[in-house]
Design a protein around this nucleic acid. Structure first.
Lengths: 93, 93
DNA sequence: TTTATTTGGTTTATTTAATAAACTAGTTTA
DNA sequence: TAAACTAGTTTATTAAATAAACCAAATAAA
């Protein structure tokens, strides 16, 4: 059995990565909206993905408010691709 | 975001279910072999799947040794199908 | 203008779950 | 008859997910 990537085999992180793989930069609020997660959970999972270098996180200000933007990295995209491959194999799809 | 079935979104349980969806009955040792799990972990996860009525578990003896056999239920198969569907949607595959 | 509310988060604490390790009960082999 | 093996289960530990509480700054309301 091909071990599934544990960082990716979690619903919220997977949803974040899947979304990021289809867009360029996405900000915190956009990710909140598409995942329906709580802010605390989203914050934690973004940090984990960042620590693994699966995403780049850019912090700035917009209209005087903090703005956190995320973008998938090459390493993150490759990990996601491999995860999907492993999952397909496991599920025979 | 379609919530993924938490019982199925776990590697070992998913591997068990995926395998069982392709065969008739499978015994404990066969599941050990194909999943490479520890016996303790396998025992626990089988019980959880059984409690959810995702699998039927039949206990008997073979050559004087205890024999535990598992088979996916209709409910389990339907849950697995739905899980795969949700996952495909999430991952755009 | 100072109090309340909202924004955009982070940190901490709690709950839940995964897993390994230890154990059980019996069987076979030497 | 002791040692080792089979086929598991139970318990204890670790790790992870999540919710709740918090924070700093900005804006709105009284």
């Amino acid at each position: 059995m091909n071990q599934l990537n544990k960082l990716l085999h979690q619903e919220l992180r997977l949803a974040i990565m899947s979304y990021l793989s289809a867009v360029d930069w996405a900000d915190f609020n956009k990710l909140l909206e598409i995942t329906q997660a709580t802010k605390g959970n989203l914050s934690v999972q973004i940090k984990k993905l960042q620590e693994a270098n699966y995403i780049d996180v850019k912090k700035s200000f917009k209209n005087n408010y903090p703005l956190t933007q995320c973008k998938i990295t090459k390493k993150g995209q490759e990990a996601l691709d491999q995860y999907v491959k492993d999952l397909k194999e496991l599920l025979n799809i």
